[in-house]
């Protein structure tokens, strides 16, 4: 009798224990992620300035937000930056992966070189590119010293062009990572399919265009999701490379949120901009994660 009940206790403990182990993390995530999201959403409907305040004022912050010039600049910049960044990274990544997959001698040396920027902080990348692109001491000066007197490259100081320098530095940092994703995809393709196609007389170009690239669909999707979420979150690189300038020519939503919340004491508007950033990322990530989790079942 006593033995039975102790066994019973033990099994019940065993059933309870896993949930107990998981509980603290789940509680942390609930509070620090979802609770905080709820709090920020709430703040975005209040008249918070320097400190959170709880006087609700409806959609006021959102309608103000969309009338602010700097927000318009930030959103336009993000659109330019994100689309160029995603497209260029994908193209370079795909090109490098396909080229590296041609039984290249020295692949083991080249691959790490393509990928190492990913290990660096965006602040380091920004510092390096800031001086590299600086007309006074960087590439422009070098070209002049090498005798190409008419060479001009002052984008980083140019209000209209500065956003493109951020694209350059960001592509430098992450295109190698995209290459690695495509390379893994290429190496995972079934040999038999390719052999069959070659026997049917498909040329190399046709092989890639008709068979290999369509088979890389999952890699394209992953690259798109990762790159777009990185683009929306990018903050460090902008701060280190241009500081959002000249003026606020390279402001993006992430820098906008920070400056309105912490330096301009417009916390309500800052919160509203953060909510919009979250919604944009959620619109991309939620369907993707949902599909991934369902597939596993």
């Amino acid at each position: 009798m006593t033995r039975d009940s102790s066994v019973d206790m033990r099994t019940r403990m065993q059933e309870f224990l896993p949930k107990l182990v998981l509980a603290p993390s789940f509680a942390l995530v609930l509070l620090f992620v979802y609770g905080f999201i709820a709090f920020t959403i709430y703040l975005s409907f209040t008249d918070s300035r320097m400190l959170p305040s709880y006087g609700l004022e409806g959609w006021e912050n959102y309608s103000k937000l969309f009338r602010i010039r700097e927000w318009e600049t930030a959103v336009t910049n993000l659109a330019i930056f994100a689309s160029l960044y995603i497209v260029i990274c994908t193209l370079i990544g795909l090109l490098l992966a396909i080229f590296l997959d041609q039984k290249i001698r020295g692949e083991g040396v080249l691959r790490p070189i393509f990928l190492y920027p990913m290990a660096l902080s965006f602040i380091v990348t920004g510092t390096a590119w800031k001086w590299f692109l600086d007309p006074g001491i960087g590439i422009e000066n070098t070209m002049h010293l090498w005798g190409w007197e008419s060479f001009e490259f002052g984008w980083i100081k140019d209000r209209d062009m500065a956003i493109y320098t951020i694209v350059i530095a960001a592509v430098w940092q992450t295109s190698g990572f995209v290459m690695a994703m495509f390379l893994a995809g290429l190496r995972g393709i079934d040999n038999e399919i390719l052999k069959a196609a070659q026997m049917d007389g498909a040329s190399n170009f046709q092989l890639y265009r008709r068979i290999i690239i369509p088979l890389l669909r999952p890699a394209f999707l992953s690259a798109f999701v990762i790159l777009s979420h990185l683009a929306i979150k990018s903050y460090d690189l902008v701060i280190a490379l241009t500081g959002g300038g000249p003026g606020n020519a390279t402001a993006v939503p992430a820098t906008f949120m920070y400056s309105y919340t912490f330096t301009r004491n417009q916390m309500g508007i800052g919160a509203a901009s953060a909510v919009i950033m979250l919604m944009t990322i959620a619109a991309i990530m939620v369907p993707y994660l949902y599909a991934e989790l369902r597939e596993k079942k």
């Binding site: 979802y34 920020t40 979150k233 800052g270 994660l289 949902y290 989790l293």
Partner: peptide, 26 residues
Amino acid sequence: FRGDTIIFGLMLFSCFIPFQIVLIPM
């Protein structure tokens, strides 16, 4: 256990949020 996928899903999504959304409460 029942609902573990939902818990994992919630944890997974937390990896990808823009951290701007948690700065003020944090």
